[in-house]
């Protein structure tokens, strides 16, 4: 039987789990190297590359810009998405699954094409600032996560709770805020976290929408990597890993990490 006790299975699984972690471990190790280029084994221990991050304005500005874009886009997607899911699951609309597919359709378009098309229509066509273009692009990236995770949450919620609230004299609006929202809190938090993390990490959408005045952090790291090959990249990578780790610990504490993938 193929249980966790099977020796072949255990060997394969452990090898690949190690291979999954090893590259990230290597990044951490190289970030402390005293040598000027990224190499292994390391020659000595230093924290200078971490200090060097602070003297890279592109990284600092990029981090702040990425944070702003991710938070605004995620919140927008959350408001628009939760309303849509509530409308879809709680009223007698026909063709529910067609609407659902329409809302998920941005995932069918390659991200780089979304970025490319938005650049042409929003920035070149409408002369709107790059920041607006980025918000719109990242909003499109986020919306499908909200639709999927919040729909799953809404389907778990018993309709009768809302009906009870109406019968007790609660208005539709009040019911939504006082009864529905608190009950789907976990999926809303999960959706927000998935939106935030994916927006913060995204490159293809922002690829065409950047310039000297505004470059998001992943793009800034990529630009730096193209011109330099020193452990500063490793150091900023470690900072990002710690950032991801902290977010995951927060999620685990409040709702459980499994909520992020819609798992049980």
């Amino acid at each position: 039987m193929l249980t966790s006790k099977n020796k072949v299975l255990t060997c394969i699984a452990i090898i690949f789990l190690i291979l999954l972690m090893l590259p990230l471990v290597l990044v951490v190790v190289t970030s402390f190297n005293t040598a000027n280029s990224i190499s292994l084994p390391i020659q000595g221990f230093t924290l200078n590359w971490y200090k060097n991050i602070l003297s890279q304005p592109d990284f600092i500005d990029g981090f702040i810009a990425s944070l702003e874009v991710a938070i605004i886009a995620s919140l927008l997607a959350l408001v628009v998405g939760v309303l849509a899911v509530y409308g879809l699951t709680r009223s007698n609309i026909h063709h529910t699954s067609a609407f659902q597919s329409f809302f998920l359709s941005p995932t069918l378009i390659p991200e780089i094409v979304i970025g490319f098309a938005l650049y042409q229509s929003v920035i070149v066509g409408l002369h709107l600032p790059v920041f607006i273009g980025l918000i719109i692009g990242h909003f499109l990236l986020c919306l499908p996560y909200v639709i999927r995770l919040v729909t799953a949450g809404m389907l778990m919620l018993d309709r009768h709770i809302e009906e009870a609230a109406w019968i007790s004299g609660c208005s539709a609006k009040k019911t939504f805020f006082l009864v529905v929202l608190p009950n789907i809190k976990a999926s809303i938090i999960a959706a927000f976290m998935m939106c935030f993390i994916n927006s913060f990490n995204n490159i293809p959408i922002s690829l065409f929408m950047n310039g000297p005045e505004l470059t998001l952090l992943p793009q800034a790291i990529m630009n730096y990597l193209q011109n330099n090959y020193d452990p500063t990249v490793s150091a900023i990578s470690v900072v990002l890993m710690v950032f991801t780790g902290v977010l995951m610990i927060l999620v685990e504490k409040f709702i459980g990490v499994n909520e992020l993938t819609g798992g049980k």
Binding site: M21, S237, L240, M248, E252, V257, N258
Partner: peptide, 25 residues
């Protein structure tokens, strides 16, 4: 659950970081 979190960590880590790791390798 521990293993699922272990799998999720690289998934949520920036793609630039993950690809950069392979340059080192």
């Amino acid at each position: 659950q521990v293993l699922s979190i272990l799998i999720l960590f690289p998934m949520l880590t920036n793609a630039v970081v993950r690809n950069f790791a392979w340059i080192i390798i």
